[in-house]
Design a protein around this nucleic acid. Sequence first.
DNA 1: TTTAATATTGTTATAATATAACATTATGTA
DNA 2: TACATAATGTTATATTATAACAATATTAAA
Lengths: 133, 133
Amino acid sequence: MMEKQLNLSKNQKIIFDLIDKSSEPMKAYSILFNVQKKGIKAPLQVYRALDKLVEIGKIHKIESRNAFIACQNSSCQISKTTAFSICESCEKVTEIKDNKLAKYLTNFSDNTGMNYKKYNLEFFGLCKKCKRK
Amino acid sequence: MMEKQLNLSKNQKIIFDLIDKSSEPMKAYSILFNVQKKGIKAPLQVYRALDKLVEIGKIHKIESRNAFIACQNSSCQISKTTAFSICESCEKVTEIKDNKLAKYLTNFSDNTGMNYKKYNLEFFGLCKKCKRK
DNA sequence: TTTAATATTGTTATAATATAACATTATGTA
DNA sequence: TACATAATGTTATATTATAACAATATTAAA
Ligand SMILES: [Zn+2]
Ligand SMILES: [Zn+2]
Ligand SMILES: [Zn+2]
Ligand SMILES: [Zn+2]
């Protein structure tokens, strides 16, 4: 879909491209190692780019893994509502796109009077492959 | 409800009691600082107790905050299905007990063929107090 | 097009979070 | 008792993330 990518700065683009190509979530220091040949030498350069990319919704942080994946769902750029499926065996992570789920959670309200515009949901289990083993 | 507490080891009990009394999620090194007078001197002693307490469901980790709170919902001890409400202003965290939500998420299945016995959901927003300001 | 505001980068140092490895002690159970 | 398992103690180290400050680039008014 390519929205916003044109606006990415040099470091942001380098780091987004790396994460986007990766088949698995990437950790900050693994990103750092992989972009050193491109001139990004310090953790802070990585974390700053990650912060920005998360902010604009191009990537998401998998909180339980301290790792980052590219958004596979264009709507997250606006909504800040994220859901992931995580295999506890092979660590494969997939972003869940499910309108019904999103609607259900977006409309959720509890008895505390809080209302939520933002959530993060992580499901854990075994993926198809790992279930067979 | 007090289940299982009798089985806690010395360090586990010290650390659980501290977290249970706290009105807010506690971070590992803050816990360490608070239990040093009781003879727990090393990070690893804290982390081992935390791991065990999480495993048996007496406490939960708030992944987005790297902090721990006591379970306020006896059923989590079995289910490993957790949901929290987090105020982004004052950082107040509440465990959500909502049978309908739990049922909905427990029964959720996507098109990948995965099935989930475990999830963690974190809602973000402003609590009643902070909304008024 | 100068000017000012804002965003991004570069760099060094350090803080905060978490685990490895190994030795010892306690607890539960046959 | 004797064995297995769980918990503890201790030192060192790995991993994740931010503070502080200086410089440069980009954007949008004036
Ligand atoms: Zn997304
Ligand atoms: Zn798998
Ligand atoms: Zn609970
Ligand atoms: Zn609040």
